[in-house]
Amino acid sequence: MTVVDRRDFLRAAGGSAAALWLTHWTAVEAAAQQAARLAASGTRAHTWDALTAEQAAAIDAFAARIIPTDDLPGAREAGAVYFIDKAVASFAQELRAPVTSLAAALDRAAGPGRVFAALAPEAQDTILQRVEKDSPDLFGAVRFAVICGTFANSGWGGNRDEAGWRILGFEHRPVWTKPYGWYDLPENLGRE
């Protein structure tokens, strides 16, 4: 939001309410900057908090099949695996067991001397179908973690560069004004 918008808002909101809102605005901005810093802190040479490099590779490949990349980013670009690593190490340790057993199961299914991450996407999908059928709880738990890692705020470790939100066509702003969408554009009002 530009400074001009802000002034407009203050005029619209009027006296004391505006002053009150200004204090909140500082908090809005601080939160946005914090999120940006966190998003920028990701680096390629990553040291994992909880996963081994092999587990991370398997989970990342799994994530990339749950939400594949096309003209829009997928769970891989969103860095879902970074979220999962952080979650397992700190704020959602109950994920450790399902994540490590799924990683092991995927590599086992890839066959002797091979790893899941190196298979072609079609072969990976065949394995996913089998795991989904044979171990629905395991599959579901890690699928859920991939979704959280793709769409939750980047402060939790995933959704890098708001990749997940771009899939949805979602934009985060502290304040919106009308028109919100197509149907409330002035030229479309009254169309049946």
Binding site: I66, I67, D70, L128, R143, L168, G169, F170, G181
Partner: peptide, 14 residues
């Protein structure tokens, strides 16, 4: 639940 179909559905968000 996953794959290209899931991705397509996600795009319906707006």
């Amino acid at each position: 639940q996953w794959g290209a179909g899931f991705k397509r559905a996600l795009r319906d968000f707006p």
